[in-house]
Write a protein that binds this DNA or RNA. Structure first.
Lengths: 124, 124
DNA sequence: ATAAACGTTCACGCCAACGTCAAGGTCAAC
DNA sequence: GTTGACCTTGACGTTGGCGTGAACGTTTAT
C-alpha cells in the first residue's frame, strides 16, 4: 500500500509517517515510480508507535518496541528493553505527578496567603 | 542599581531580566551612559515574577501580578485579576494531574498486558 | 489533454523562556 | 594606557513532533 492508505489505516498523517522514517523508526520499500510501499507489518508498527506516543512516549522511547516487533515478536513490549522503557516511563510519570502535586500545594499556599478567604476547592 | 546587581539579588540571569523587559513585564530607567538603572521596587517585581514562574506560571500569567504591584498594592496577588489567574492555574494543574494519572494507568495496563509478571509497583 | 488526487523532497514555522555567542561601548583600578 | 569587569543591542540555538506550504513528478478518470 502507499503512504496515504497506511496513514489512514494507522490514524496518522502522511507527514508523521515520513517523520518516523526520518527518525529511523520505520523503513519503506520503494515502487518503480519512487513511491513508498508498505505492507501489513508496517500497519502494526505504526499502531505500536501511536499507542506509545499517545501516552506521552517520545519517538526515541518507541525504538525498542519497534525493534522488538521487527525481531519477530508478536508484541513490541515482549522484549526486556521495552519493559525497561516502560518502567522508566512509569517512574518519570510518577515523578511528574509528585512535582505537580507539590506545585499545586505551593500555588494554593500563595493564593491563601494573599487572599485567605478565596475558595481553594479542587477541580479534581 | 545596575542589571548585574538586580540579577544577583533577585536570583535570575541578566538575560532573563532583559527578556522580562522585552516582554513588557518590567521597565528600566537609563543612566547617562545607557546602562539600565533599577531600584528596590524592581527587586520586589522580579521576586514576584520568579515566585510565579517557579511554580509553572508563564510570563503572560505573571502580568496581572506585576500590574498589581505597580498599582501600589503590597502583594501582587491582592488584585482580583491575579486571583483569577491563580484559580485558572489551579484548575490547569488539576487537569494535568488527572491526565497524568490516567496516563500512568494506561502505561501500567500496557505493561501488564505485555508482561503480566512484571512488577508494577509505584515509585511514589 | 487536462484536471483531480495522489506521490516526492526540501525547509521554515511553532511554543517558552531564556542560553549563548558576537561585536562592541563604559568605567574603575593599576 | 591597558587590563578586566561591567554594560549595550542583536540574533541564532534549544526541545519534539509534526503542520504547512513550495515546487514538482505520477497516475487515473473524464
Amino acid at each position: 500500500m502507499r503512504i496515504g492508505e497506511l496513514a489512514e489505516r494507522a490514524g496518522v498523517s502522511t507527514r508523521a509517517l515520513r517523520h518516523y522514517e526520518q527518525q529511523g523508526l520505520i523503513r519503506a520499500r520503494r515502487s518503480a515510480n519512487g513511491y513508498r510501499d508498505y505492507d501489513e507489518a508496517d500497519v502494526r508498527l505504526v499502531a505500536q508507535i501511536r499507542a506509545l506516543t499517545a501516552v506521552g512516549f517520545t519517538l526515541e522511547d518507541a525504538r525498542p518496541f519497534v525493534a522488538c516487533l521487527l525481531a519477530g515478536h508478536e508484541s513490541g513490549a515482549a522484549c526486556p528493553e521495552s519493559v525497561d522503557v516502560y518502567r522508566r516511563k512509569l517512574a518519570e510519570i510518577d515523578a511528574e505527578i509528585r512535582a505537580l502535586v507539590a506545585r499545586r500545594a505551593e500555588v494554593a499556599a500563595q493564593l491563601k496567603q494573599a487572599c485567605p478567604g478565596c475558595a481553594i476547592r479542587r477541580t479534581k
